[in-house]
Write a protein that binds this DNA or RNA. Structure first.
Length: 482
RNA sequence: CGGGGUGUAGUAUAUCGGUAGUAUCUAUGUUUUGGGAACAUAAGGGCCGGGUUCGAUUCCCGGCACCCCGACCA
């Protein structure tokens, strides 16, 4: 009977089955549910809070640099999608198409957007006439559909939520600088809020966005050593401008094609958050991502219930002045304290505050860190300050340990044997390769590693391809990936 | 689309060719409360179709669904 109990409440250890561990965390924290349509995902309220946080913070950052929101339709006429050759070839295998509506077969099928470049640029071509209309900086929050063969909650779902920014510029240099600027913005967000360190770099020719000139990416390392592409920013060059006839008249009165970027971050980032910080007890949220930052658990019995809960509420309302009404919760449910602890641990709440009759008598309470489990006895007079400090400590410590993990699991390989064994060990492997799609394919077949990116600081390095021995410029990171 | 696995209550599981058992969850009540409480009562189940059989949840065939591993996923 003990055995059954343990099994029911335990989370599969990471070391045993990482994949199952990940699913367990999601279930334990009550983040999502499977939908009747395979591959689609229901995001439950506690999970959606994370998405709302991402939305709020990113949206404010976008607006700070002059990017405003708009909305474009979900249905795209098929002829628009097919306009840019590489784009349609890249996406064709995974688009869902509406062929019937209103009880009739449609004359022209409508594609459920896998991404919105085409429909947005069809509009842009009429919005842009002169250099005075540039740059045009627009973002949209939307859902997109990609019919992937294999899905995983948050990491790759058939339908997912994201933001996609689409900008238009007068020169390629300006567009490129903007694409990189957005990547830096993402990096800052991931560092300061999600506590996820990333490697910034450029995608290889075969991994870049279909239709882009260059794709820049933030790659993060998960706890099993696999890479996750957490967001991308594309310099689209003038490819789409030419396909959609987006032209402007410059200061010399001559007509020119415009230069564009697009960039996005999706609900996949939540998957990255889960896999970066969580432990075998459940989810761990960085304080800057947690709506609920402190949960207060009064320790009571029948006699002390009223007085202890009163005191707990009093402290809580003091804290709410600092952390917001939704930032502090007093859990007065009629359950044993231990049960509550486990529940909030599974949900990743950064700090738990235990307060019982003995504490009150001593004018103190017990502050417990979710990340380390450390218990800190705190005078009631210093609670708010101590919590503020502890939240900062947790935030920093989560980032630092993730960074440390990433650094210590990133290695260089100079021979093929080194390379194979490092990939086998789940490392990020820095190595030269000749840049050809064939070599990439070959390496993937033999080791299941893919080119994650060419880190910006490696672009100039020269050497010989790890596989073919051909001359190579720009060392890349290889890794297994999600 | 290949390889493997599983279909029994909301969830997790057991047994068995003959009345389907347990835990958990849910509801109600009493007692409890410094790390997953106890007792009592109640409600709730065999994926679908066919075959073998006196009798199938069990065995066989087919379908369907789901899970895992690959392929695929710029």
């Amino acid at each position: 009977m003990e055995q059954v109990k343990a099994n029911e409440k335990a989370i599969t250890p990471r070391a045993t089955d990482y994949s199952q561990w990940y699913l367990d965390i999601i279930a334990a924290a009550d983040l999502s549910d499977y939908s009747p349509v395979k591959g689609c995902m229901v995001i439950k309220p506690y999970g959606y809070q994370l998405w709302e946080r991402i939305q709020n913070v990113l949206d404010a950052k976008f607006k700070d640099i002059g990017v405003n929101n708009a909305y474009f339709p979900m249905l795209i006429p098929e002829r628009l999608l097919t306009r840019e050759k590489e784009h349609v070839e890249g996406f064709a295998p995974e688009v869902a198409v509406v062929t019937h509506a209103g009880g009739e077969k449609l004359e022209e099928p409508l594609v459920l957007r896998p991404t919105s470049e085409t429909i947005i640029y069809e509009m842009y071509k009429d919005w842009i006439r002169s250099y005075r209309d540039l740059p045009l900086l627009i973002n949209q929050w939307a859902n997109v559909i990609r019919w992937e063969k294999r899905t995983r909650p948050f990491l790759r779902t058939t339908e997912f939520l994201w933001q996609e920014g689409h900008t238009v510029h007068a020169t390629n240099a300006e567009a490129d600088a903007f694409a990189k600027k957005m990547l830096d913005l993402y990096e800052g967000f991931l560092r300061d809020y999600m506590a996820i360190p990333v490697v910034k770099g450029m995608k290889s020719e075969s991994e870049k966005f279909a239709g882009a000139l260059y794709t820049y990416t933030c790659e993060a390392m998960m706890q099993d050593g696999k890479a996750l592409q957490i967001c991308t920013s594309h310099n689209l060059g003038d490819h789409f401008a030419k396909a959609f006839d987006i032209k402007f008249v410059d200061e010399q009165s001559s007509s020119q094609y415009a230069w564009q970027t697009s960039w996005g971050m999706s609900t996949r980032a939540i998957g990255g958050l889960i896999m970066t910080h969580s432990d075998d007890k459940g989810l761990v949220l960085p304080p800057n991502m947690a709506t609920l930052k402190v949960v207060v658990v009064p320790i009571v019995n029948v006699d002390t219930k009223q007085s202890v809960e009163e005191k707990a509420n009093e402290i809580a309302s003091e804290m709410q002045k600092e952390f917001g009404v939704r930032g502090v919760h007093v859990d007065t449910r009629d359950m044993r304290p231990g049960e509550k602890y486990f529940e909030w641990e599974k949900k990743g709440v950064p700090i738990r505050l235990e307060i019982g009759p003995k504490d009150i008598a001593n004018g103190q309470c017990v502050l417990v860190r979710r990340d380390t489990g450390e218990k800190i006895v705190t005078p009631l007079t210093d609670v708010v300050t101590n919590i503020q400090n502890t939240l900062k400590l947790i935030q920093d410590s989560l980032y630092n340990s993730a960074l440390e993990r990433q650094n210590s699991n990133t290695v260089e390989a100079n021979t093929w044997d080194e390379f194979v064994s490092a990939i086998e060990d789940g490392k990020f492997v820095l190595a030269h390769y000749d840049g050809s799609a064939e070599t990439e394919k070959l390496i993937k077949t033999e080791t299941s590693a893919t080119v994650r990116c060419i880190p910006f600081n490696e672009v100039a390095s020269e050497g010989l391809c790890i596989k073919t021995g051909a001359p190579s410029k720009g060392r890349v990171i290889f890794a297994k990936n999600y």
